[in-house]
Amino acid sequence: MINLIIAIVIGVLILIMAIIAVHHKNIVVGIIAAGVVSLFASILYLLLAAPDVAMTEAAIGSGLSTIIFFYVLNKIKRQNG
């Protein structure tokens, strides 16, 4: 029962975050929101009894891909002067 409630709330959160990620005009906010989507997706995986996938998603989806996005964004900002 409690798993269902957690899943519903987290699912709604994921969808709201995804809409923010796509539609916010500030790209930095978009990337942070995409990271949040990954982090909450890993909670969903945990509820679905997939700790391996949850760990991968937490480590890669939110950590490393955010880093790569920000490195690229930083380089673009630097070239703009």
Binding site: L39, S42, A54, M55, A58, A59, S62, G63, I67
Partner: peptide, 13 residues
């Protein structure tokens, strides 16, 4: 274990 990774990665982010 997942919680440990999670804490680490949120800090890094």
């Amino acid at each position: 274990d997942v919680a440990i990774v999670y804490g680490l990665l949120s800090f890094l982010g």
